[in-house]
Amino acid sequence: MNWIANNLDQVGQLTLAHLAIALPPIVLSFVISVPIGWLANRLRWSRGILRWSSGALLTLCVLLYAIPSFPLFVALPSLIGTGLRDPVNVVVGLTLYGIALMVRTSADGLAAVDPDVRESATAVGFSGWSRFWRVELPLSAPVLLAGLRVVAVSTVSLTTVGAVLGISSLGTLFTDGFQRNIPAEIATGIVVTMAIALIIDAILVLVGRLLLPWVRATSRAGGPRTSRSVKQAVVT
């Protein structure tokens, strides 16, 4: 506890540095992935080379996802010409992970929109563009949100790994605490990192509730636990 009191400044600064690295990938990967996911989903229903390229796109995401982050942070500088200790490496690396995860999620979320709903939206006169904004996007929003939450939590946690490369973040508390043998410093790093992750997660949940009020109404009847009893009722 003493350690925290004496180093409040440092913790504050590292927290800001942490957020500066972690937030851009969360936003960027979301913004980049949804259109790609939409495209991948579109192509999934076409034929021949286009369909194949959709599969290839999604497979590429899986492969990208399989690349461990620490080696990626190490390898990126030589690929994009940044310095070895440049925070940009971590931002780019985490954005790539976010994309790898979100493209699949977006494609699946959009694919899960009931084709009947989509057709009837077309039938009542939505154009392709407005149908996307007014029908497909809102309906796949719960899935997108779930994916975004996963990306956010893991991004915040992964940002600490940059510290072993000497890139400042809350992870610096780990490496520094290790070298100087201060468990309290490490514990502080863990707690603050988790707190940030959970706060961002909570914010996303809250935003979701505000933007998607209908989800709660439906999921109350069909949440993971309740759906069981609903199904049970269907059985009986």
């Binding site: 939590v153 893991s154 915040v156 946690s157 992964l158 600490t160 790994v161 510290a163 072993v164 809350l170 992870g171 508390l173 780990f174 490496t175 605490g177 290790f178 043998n181 468990p183 490490i186 514990a187 790093g189 863990i190 990192t193 988790m194 992750a197 959970l198 997660d201 993971p224 636990r225």
Partner: peptide, 26 residues
């Protein structure tokens, strides 16, 4: 389920590097 699921969600937010080093110090 009500306990374990949020708990394991919380564990997902745990930075492994920090845990690794903390355990190593101990």
């Amino acid at each position: 389920r009500g306990i374990i699921v949020p708990l394991s969600g919380g564990v997902r937010a745990l930075p492994t590097l920090g845990l690794l080093i903390l355990v190593a110090l101990n």
